Computed example of a mutant assay.
Amino acid sequence: MAGETTERPREGSGEPGAVRRATVYDVARAAEVSIATVSFAFRRPDSVKPSTRERVLAAARALGYAPSGAARGLAAGRTGVFGLHSFDLILDHAQALAGEFDDPVPELDLDALAADGPISFDALGEAAWPDPRAYPLYVDEVQRGFELESRRLGREVLLSRGSSSATAVADTAGRVDGLAVFPTRDAPETLRTISRTMPVVLLSAAPSEDDHHRVLVDNMGGMQTLIAHLIDDHGIRDLGFVGSIEPSDAAERFRGMGLAMAERGLTPPEAPIDSSTLAERDSLARVAELAAQRRLPRALVCTNDQLALVTMEVLRGAGLDVPTDVAVTGFDGVLAGRLSTPTLTTVRQPMESMGRIAARILADEYAAPSKGPRRYRLGTRLEIRASCGCA
Rank of each mutant, 00 (worst) to 15 (best):
E54T: 14
Y65F: 06
Y65K: 00
V19I: 03
A66H: 14
A58R: 15
V19N: 03
P16A: 15
V33Q: 04
P16R: 11
T52N: 01
S47M: 12
A60Q: 10
A62K: 15
T23F: 00
V24C: 05
I35Y: 12
T37W: 05
S47T: 15
A36C: 03
R21D: 05
G64I: 10
K49P: 00
T52I: 00
G14Q: 08
K49C: 00
D26M: 00
V19Q: 03
R8D: 01
E7I: 02
D26A: 00
D46Q: 03
A18M: 10
F40S: 09
L63G: 10
E11G: 11
V27G: 05
L63M: 01
T52L: 00
A41G: 00
A60P: 01
E15L: 15
R8T: 02
P16C: 14
A28S: 15
T52S: 02
E7S: 12
A31K: 13
F42I: 02
P45E: 06
A60D: 09
G14C: 08
A59P: 11
D26W: 01
L57H: 12
R20S: 14
E15T: 13
A22I: 07
V56F: 05
V24Q: 03
A28C: 13
S13N: 06
I35L: 10
V33D: 07
G12M: 05
V56E: 03
R29M: 09
Y65G: 09
A36N: 06
R61V: 06
R44K: 07
K49M: 03
A62R: 15
P50D: 08
R10F: 13
P9K: 03
L57Y: 11
A18L: 12
V48R: 07
V56R: 04
S47Y: 08
V48G: 12
R44I: 09
R20K: 11
S39M: 06
P45T: 11
P67L: 13
V19S: 06
G17L: 03
P16F: 12
R21T: 08
A22S: 11
V27R: 05
P9S: 08
V38I: 06
S47E: 11
A18I: 11
D26S: 05
S47K: 13
T37N: 05
R21Y: 09
R44W: 06
P50R: 10
T37V: 07
P16Y: 14
R20P: 11
R53H: 01
I35R: 14
R10Q: 12
A28V: 14
S39F: 04
A59S: 12
K49Y: 03
V27H: 04
T23E: 04
R61E: 15
D46A: 12
T37R: 07
V56M: 06
L63W: 01
A41K: 01
P67G: 10
F40A: 10
V48T: 13
E7H: 06
V38C: 04
R20C: 11
A58S: 15
A66C: 08
R43F: 08
I35H: 13
L63F: 03
S13Q: 06
R43T: 14
G64S: 09
P67H: 12
A18C: 12
A28H: 14
A31M: 10
G64Q: 11
R61F: 09
S39Y: 02
E11Q: 15
L57P: 14
L63H: 05
A28R: 15
V33T: 02
R53T: 00
A28D: 14
P50I: 03
S13A: 11
R29P: 03
R43C: 07
D26G: 01
S47A: 13
D46W: 01
A58C: 09
R20T: 13
